[in-house]
Design a protein around this nucleic acid. Structure first.
Lengths: 231, 231
DNA sequence: GGTTATTATTGATATTGATCAGTCAGGACG
DNA sequence: CGTCCTGACTGATCAATATCAATAATAACC
């Protein structure tokens, strides 16, 4: 978990456009001086459920999962998301502590700024505040929508749904390396690991997907969409 | 659907403390002059999924359900909530149109202000912006948490969970009139109506609840908690 | 490069929940 | 007061999914 401080290359940061477009160059420079970057390897945890929130964080590169632990000790994955979709946890302004954990599914870089600093900015600058609120709302809506989508489908529909999610939202490619284990897919869609595997095997047998180790190719995306829609 | 305009009794409004505590008396008066109240009878719809968002709305009194329609035409209830917990839809600042529908489960009063007006206030007044963001975050976290809680339980656990939800969060009483049909409970917890009814009958048989028509009394709340926790 | 530990896979079986069909009870209304 | 209609309820059966157990395939590690 390697940390760099103050290295300011914000000019090229994609996130700038999303939330920070309301800041002038001075404010951005100021922000840069307050930011820290953190490189994380696959598997490392970014936030722990229950930990005190002290930084505003966003994902600069990589891929993360947002999850919590159920009373029975299982992991429940809330969402999987890539850069700029993920702004800290949702609740940074309303809660003292993280509601959920976040960890890296691929090597990732997280950018962080002291929460106090962001709060001041938020209070001073209405445009920034509005941009941030919009961003957080969109993320929340996405999570809620996803959860409801999944809830309303059956096993095969859910598996098809995640495959399409990786294809479209995460990798934007019909061929990709699965960044999660079968068990993690199961934790995400709320089904048993054995049945996730079985369903993937079925898809393989029917020629809907091809599997080479961790690499998956979606061969028949229309069929997958149909299954996801009607499942 | 009866509308009153400009009647300003904001001094007594509980919502004021929640979000509007950052406004001075003038701003509040100004806000009052821009607000409209709407009385709705049980069953009436407050927002339609897909409709254009033009007002900031909050629930002054009553009880509402937030729901959407699945592709197959079933209703999927996202949450059931009482006054001050519900601030318009989440996405008022990020989306053009409502993502979900909202309708009244009991006679309700909704207070509304033109969205433009709230946006201006948001831009001008950082404290107000922060208050609003916090409120929206809390609501979102609650919805996400609830949905995850439900997802992770089995049939009996889910039914126990909603009964406890009504007891604790909605009515704060072990005796209450169910504001929803059995089918709505089913749409809420994602199970079939028949099985919801069966489970309620089981609870009745085991002496965990008593049922007099629409009225429910939770007789053994510890047992219900156990079922909810382990179910 | 062999050994060990995980993770993936599959089949058999047990549970859980959905569906279907039918009855019942209560309210709305002529 | 009867009839219609809707929501509540129940039993029987069927379908979906979980669980358990036993290998196979991979990855991790000395």
């Amino acid at each position: 978990m390697n940390e760099k401080k103050g290295v300011c290359i914000c000019e090229g940061c994609e996130f700038r456009d999303v939330v920070f477009s309301h800041l002038d160059d001075n404010s951005i420079q100021d922000l840069c001086n307050h930011k820290e970057e953190q490189s994380l390897s696959k598997g490392e945890v970014i936030n722990h459920e229950g930990e005190k929130i002290s930084n505003f964080k966003y994902l600069k590169s990589g891929l993360v999962k947002l999850y919590r632990r159920t009373p029975s000790g299982d992991e429940q994955i809330i969402t999987i998301t890539r850069p700029f979709e993920f702004v800290s946890n949702m609740s940074i302004f309303s809660e003292e502590r993280y509601q959920y954990s976040v960890s890296a599914l691929e090597d990732s870089v997280v950018c962080m700024v002291k929460l106090e600093f962001i709060k001041e900015l938020f209070l001073k600058n209405g445009g920034f505040a509005m941009g941030l609120l919009s961003k957080i709302s969109v993320i929340n809506d996405k999570i809620i929508g996803q959860t409801l989508d999944i809830r309303q489908k059956n096993l095969v529909g859910r598996v098809a749904y995640v495959l399409l999610y990786f294809t479209r939202e995460i990798y934007n490619s019909r061929v990709f390396d699965l960044p999660v284990s079968r068990k993690e897919i199961a934790d995400y869609i709320g089904m048993s690991t054995a049945n996730v595997i079985r369903t993937l095997s079925d898809f393989k047998r029917e020629g809907i997907i091809r599997v080479f180790g961790k690499t998956i190719e979606v061969a028949d995306i229309e069929k997958l969409e149909n299954i996801s829609r009607h499942g």
